[in-house]
């Protein structure tokens, strides 16, 4: 197993959490992590792993920080 930090933002926090550490099996992907916290791939518009854009198939590593955003914009 490995431990990663999952951070949720904006509307994704509703009924969930802001930031939590979660245990995942070695070799798990971003999509696996999303499933673990009940966020669908459609809801997760923008994903960062360690502050870099990542796709749902990206394989996570011990200590990674995954940030998940719904569609947002502004400026």
């Amino acid at each position: 197993m490995m431990t990663i930090t999952i951070k949720l933002f904006a509307s994704l926090r509703q009924g969930r959490f802001e930031s939590e550490s979660r245990a995942l099996a070695e070799g798990s992907s971003v999509l696996d992590a999303l499933e673990l916290v009940g966020v669908s791939a459609a809801e997760a518009a923008v994903l960062f792993v360690n502050s870099r854009h990542a796709g749902p198939k990206h394989i996570l590593a011990e200590g990674d920080s995954l940030a998940v955003f719904p569609p947002v914009g502004g400026g």
Binding site: K7, F9, A10, S11, V46, F48, S51, A67, F69, P70, P71, V72, G73, G74, G75
Partner: peptide
Amino acid sequence: GLPAYGTNVLTNIINE
């Protein structure tokens, strides 16, 4: 996103 949080919804994502 814009109606709920305004333009400042960007602080977290640009920081991230």
